[in-house]
Structures are given as C-alpha cells and as structure tokens.
Design a protein around this nucleic acid. Structure first.
Length: 273
DNA sequence: CGCCAGGGTCTCG
DNA sequence: CGAGACCATGGC
C-alpha cells in the first residue's frame, strides 16, 4: 500500500490530534493514526512534517485536517507576547480540524467540567452503545441525533455523562425533530449563528465557541475554558474580571485568528510548562 | 478525604 | 449584567 501526501502543506499531526479537538483517534505502535471522518474510516501518518494518507482518501484528509489553511499568514498575525511565542514554537504545524457539526457539538455538550480523558471515555461509550459499526474500522460512528433522540436519559447516563445526559438528549431531539438544522445554520453570520447555538440545551458561551471554531470554520472564535482563563489571567498580569471582560480581552489581544492562537495556548498549557 | 476538570442554568440583586 | 448555588463523574 503506497501512501501519498495530498498536499505539500506542513502539519504537526500528533499536536493536531492530541490537542483536545477530537476524541476518537488512536495511534498504533507503528505511528499510524486510525480514525473516522463521520462514518468514513481514515488512516494517516506524518513523514517529514507532511501528512500521508491512504490511497483514495487524499481529498478527504486534506479537507479534514484543513491543509488549505494559510499557516504562514496566520503565524504572521500571531501576538508577540511571551506565552503566544512559546506556544507557536511548541505547536508549529498544529491545524484546526474541520469536524462534522453534530459530532462536534455533541461531544462538547458532554465536555463541561470534564477532563479530556473523560471526554474520550464518554465518546467511546456513546459510540459503542448507540453508534453504527463502520466497515474497515474498529471505531463506531458517533451516534446520530436520531439514535440519541430514541434513547432514554438513563441509558445515556450509563455512558458516564452524569447531569449532562438530559442536555444531550434534549438537543438531539430538537435536531432529530427538524427544529434545528445544524448544516443550514452554517449560512448565518457569526453573531446569528452564535445565538442559534446558545439556544440549544447544554450549549452556553464556551461550547458555542467550540462549535464555531471546530465545526463552522469561524477562526476568530475563542473558547475560554479554565486553562485559557489562566493563560489570559497571566497575560493580564493577574488582573481578574468578568467572563465578558476576558472575552473582549482575548478578541482584541489574540488577533484575527484568535481561535488558532487559543488552540496553541491551550495545547501548550495542558501539555506542560 | 479534598481537589479539579475544554460549563450551563437558574435565581437573586 | 454579575455573582452564587447546584448540577454528576472519575482520577489523583
């Protein structure tokens, strides 16, 4: 099997798949990453700072890993404070992943007050219990809104979701019933899209920003979790404030690709130093 | 045992 | 709008 590079664009694959954007990819002993894009199995690896994909999957991989994003232009707009510079040096090549919209929104509804390892465990349990098998992969597809809408809250709770179970169920029902169309929302300008997302159960400011950044290509959206809040607190020399003040500070300070900067800062903060 | 985790919602000023 | 209480779970 000859693997091909779908693009000459550089990528840091381990950082990209290990930075808390997606929670279902696994790296084997040979360094090959196994995952799914929706219900399509994909295997990729990195060589010489470039992405290699299986034959016939180049286009899918190029889009999923956003190899079209202009990293050099993004880096030219990076802030020049100490934390951002160190994050860029540590994470150079990290790319935002273009995620399926429901899968992204649902996993971040389950993410509140949970560690990354727990989010992965809940995602795995939900896929096992409610997802459909995928030929050629040992990972099941993320359960559809319809599959979860047909489940019981207790059944979902048994996947370890705790109080998040009700919110996931309610939002799944709203989408399965056709009251909200996540794909149609993509046509909206960001402020309207944000409002629509925040109207869904379990979706507040932070989760909406995750969906905006990871599933709607709004690269200026900045999810502010406890890690990023600490980073911003240091940038502000310890000066605290309200959530809206931190959001405003991040928007002004992190620039036009604030979402990208945020992801680099998050990965640096979480993986040490 | 206490503490923390990619928070949201509701209530009360 | 802002602050506080409450909401489950699991690892350390």
């Amino acid at each position: 099997m000859t693997w091909r590079a779908p693009s000459d664009a550089p990528i840091a694959l381990d950082a990209t798949l290990g930075s808390g954007q997606v929670f279902h990819w696994k790296k084997d002993v040979e360094g090959i990453w196994h995952g799914l894009v929706g219900d399509v199995p994909l295997r990729v690896r990195e060589r010489g700072g470039r992405l290699l994909a299986e034959p016939g999957r180049g286009g899918l991989a190029r889009r999923y890993f956003s190899l079209d994003h202009p990293l050099e232009e993004i880096y030219a707009r990076f802030p020049v404070d100490r934390a951002s510079i160190e994050a860029l040096e540590m994470c150079r090549g990290l790319r935002m992943i273009r995620q399926p919209r429901w899968e992204c929104l649902a996993t971040f509804i389950t993410s509140s007050m949970k560690k990354v390892a727990h989010i992965r465990a809940m995602s795995t349990a939900l896929r096992l219990k409610y997802g459909t098998p995928v030929a050629g992969s040992d990972i099941r597809a993320y359960p559809s809104p319809e599959a979860l809408a047909a489940a019981s809250e207790q059944g979902i709770r048994e996947c370890g979701l705790g109080y998040r179970s009700g919110n996931l169920l309610l939002t799944a029902r709203r989408i399965a019933d056709g009251l909200t169309d996540l794909d149609a929302l993509a046509a909206l300008p960001t402020p309207d899209l944000r409002r629509a997302l925040e109207g869904l159960p379990g979706v507040g400011v932070k989760v909406a920003n995750c969906a905006l950044l990871f599933a709607y290509e709004r690269l200026d959206a900045v999810p502010i979790d406890v890690w990023i809040r600490r980073v911003l607190l240091t940038m502000r020399n310890g000066r605290s404030g309200t959530p809206s003040q931190f959001a405003r500070y991040a928007r002004l300070r992190l620039g036009p690709y604030a979402g990208y900067v945020q992801q680099y800062l998050f990965h640096r903060a979480r993986t040490g130093l």
